[in-house]
Amino acid sequence: MAVFTSVSLDDVRPWIAQFPLGEAVALKGIASGIENSNFFLTTQSGDVRTEHVLTIFENLGFEQLPFYLQLMRHLAGHGVLVPEPVPNHDGQLCVPLHGKPAAIVSKLEGSSQMDPQPVHCAAVGDMLARMHLAGRDFPLHQPNLRGIAWWHETAPAVLPHLPEAQVQLLRSEIHFQEAFHGSDLYKRLQQGPVHADLFRNNVMFDGERLTGFFDFYFAGCDTWLFDVAVTVNDWCIDLDTGVLDTARVRAMLDAYHAVRPFTAHEQAGWQCALRAGALRFWLSRLYDLYQPRAAEMLTPHDPTHFERILRERIATPAPRLFA
């Protein structure tokens, strides 16, 4: 999304010959996000022009990428609205470009809904439940690479930069999550492939019609409850305070529950999962702030946003998953 690797149209034209897409006629960097280099790519075959997204992966290697790309292909084949990877003439979904893994996926219609209303939240909840169910028979497994093991690995890199109040919060929350992840309750939560980053800017709408989820490159296998918590923590809050908006929360949870009913164990772990979702993004934003990487068009996100959300989830009971 940020551009770490510069690519020109002249670079892409010979490279794209291995794909059944025709000629590359336009290329434009996408100035959002902080993990990969993304470009809008326009191709022309005969009189037909088609838009795609070209991604160059900056942190993920060839050994990890089959999980993400095959998951997207699997979900698309099960009717979930996601970008579909384009294989080259040899059936490969990921091939080198400038020495780094690269892939082309279809471009979704519409635009991101940055001021969501309950109707948008309901559409996201419905599709998220369908995505979880569709992933049950996905044969590949990869852990959530930004899960608790990563939290332990990353915290020491940011703690020296924090004032004492934040140090105490980070250490105490990781300790709390260790206990939760080691509990019998946690072992009873339903698991499978999750998006793990389903923020407003990773979903497309055409008016009130949801046209797709994208950016699956934080996906992994985790609890479905964690995926719901990450989504609620972005879609259903007052951005200035982190306080949950009850109408949006209810719309999202009720729509999800109608497709894939929540369990009693998930209800018991709901507050813990909301805290886990807030911790994950507070820590990653701290890391991006204090361990920056050079990139064109890169602006790190403000970590205090998720610090506020974490403190709010600790202090205030969340609405129930279901009645």
Rank of each mutant, 00 (worst) to 15 (best):
D11Y: 02
W150T: 00
F39N: 04
V203E: 01
P163Y: 03
E109F: 07
A264L: 12
M127V: 13
N38W: 01
M72H: 06
V230K: 04
A264G: 03
S6I: 05
A123E: 11
S32K: 13
Q271H: 11
A26H: 13
H152N: 02
D10T: 08
A258Y: 05
D184F: 05
E296N: 09
F62M: 12
M114T: 14
L162M: 10
F19I: 04
M72S: 11
N88C: 12
P261M: 02
E35R: 12
L289Y: 07
V232L: 07
H120P: 03
I104D: 04
L69E: 11
Q191H: 10
S45W: 00
T316H: 12
D302Q: 08
K100D: 01
F39H: 03
A294V: 07
V3G: 02
L298Q: 05
Q177G: 06
L279D: 01
Q267M: 10
M297H: 12
Q44R: 15
N202W: 08
L9R: 01
E35T: 13
L310A: 12
D240Y: 01
T241V: 09
P143M: 01
L69I: 06
R13A: 13
L162K: 13
A76V: 00
T316F: 02
L108P: 11
A122L: 08
L9D: 08
D184R: 13
W235K: 01
A31W: 00
F226R: 11
P116A: 14
G77Q: 09
G33Y: 09
Q271A: 14
E58H: 08
A129K: 06
P66Q: 08
V230Y: 02
F281L: 15
R188D: 14
V80D: 10
L189R: 04
H132I: 12
F67Q: 05
G77N: 13
K107V: 10
L60F: 02
S284W: 00
A278F: 13
E63C: 07
A268I: 01
V158H: 06
A2P: 10
G125S: 09
I16V: 14
D234I: 13
V194A: 14
F214D: 01
G77K: 02
G91L: 10
S6M: 03
V158T: 09
E178Q: 15
P118V: 07
S183F: 10
H301T: 05
E109K: 06
S37A: 10
L310F: 11
A2K: 06
A24S: 06
A157G: 00
E109C: 04
G220R: 04
S112A: 15
L244N: 07
C236Y: 00
L97Q: 04
W224E: 07
R49C: 11
E58N: 14
G192F: 09
F199D: 03
A323M: 11
C94D: 04
L21E: 03
A24W: 13
Q92H: 14
G242M: 06
G91R: 14
C121V: 00
L108H: 05
L75Q: 00
M114H: 08
H132Q: 02
R146F: 13
L9V: 05
A318E: 15
D302I: 08
H181V: 10
T246H: 07
V7P: 00
M252C: 10
H265V: 02
Q271W: 05
